[in-house]
């Protein structure tokens, strides 16, 4: 009974679980966590390579921002525009969501607890939505005050950098919604756990990118 907590059922691409193995005692073929880890290693490494290439995209946008941040064209500068307490709350929300995704990974990998994985996924999802809502609010407020991306080189670079991050968060949330549905339907098997691992990397990565935005755009801007 207890060993069940250590193994995942295998699911093929079509979504059907595999035939029972010859002795017929198991309902589906099961592999150990260790084996499944090695099988998934390539998939996760591939996803890691994607994330690293995404780093280069963000690096280009950060470099652009750093170059253009003083080109305000007579408009407001970073220090005059942003509300620091608002940004702090945004940062803490995203940080917490990164932590709660860590709990998802832990319950998926070490405890194989479907209900807890779903609960923490849902909490992470809500925190992500809250973060995105705050970001959209900030953008709308800036645009309303006449400080849209058309105002100056600085604001073009700001909206591109922060907007690209927001776009990534949106994609992450859509993916997370789809994974919540998949875990509800299939439970924790080799496919859903692998996808959770990839989304976990993605989510932590977005948190790290935000830390740089927080430091470079908001903190440096307020000095």
């Amino acid at each position: 009974m207890t060993t069940k907590t250590l193994i995942y059922p295998v699911r093929d691409r079509e979504g059907s679980q595999r035939e029972p193995i010859s002795n017929g005692t198991l309902h589906h073929q099961e592999i150990s966590r260790e084996e499944s880890y090695h099988a998934d290693n390539k998939a996760i490494f591939g996803f890691w390579a994607y994330i690293m290439s995404d780093c280069l995209l963000f690096a280009s946008l950060f470099a652009t921002y750093a170059v253009l941040q003083n080109n305000t064209y007579g408009g407001p500068s970073a220090g005059e525009l942003f509300s620091m307490p608002f940004v702090l709350v945004e940062t803490l929300i995203l940080l917490t969501s990164s932590f709660t995704f860590g709990l998802v990974t832990m319950y998926a990998h070490h405890h194989n607890s479907k209900s807890k994985v779903l609960a923490w996924l849902f909490v992470t999802f809500l925190l992500g939505v809250a973060f995105l809502a705050m970001e959209v609010t900030e953008f709308a407020k800036l645009a309303e005050e006449g400080n849209s991306w058309q105002r100056s080189g600085f604001l073009s670079a700001f909206f591109t950098l922060v907007g690209t991050h927001g776009l990534h968060v949106t994609a992450g949330l859509l993916w997370m919604g789809s994974l919540i549905a998949q875990v509800m339907r299939y439970g924790l098997d080799s496919v859903t756990v692998r996808k959770l691992s990839c989304l976990g990397l993605f989510w932590h990565f977005l948190d790290i990118v935000w830390i740089f935005i927080f430091t470079v755009v908001y903190l440096m801007g307020a000095i």
């Binding site: 966590r33 940080l95 932590f99 860590g102 070490h110």
Partner: peptide
């Protein structure tokens, strides 16, 4: 099983430590 639970405890400890440090460093 013990090893896996041990690994689970380690993972939790790592996430909590990381979270506390990250909040502090923010």
């Amino acid at each position: 099983i013990d090893e896996y639970y041990e690994a689970g405890r380690k993972a939790l400890k790592s996430y909590v430590t990381g979270f506390v440090l990250a909040i502090f460093l923010t």
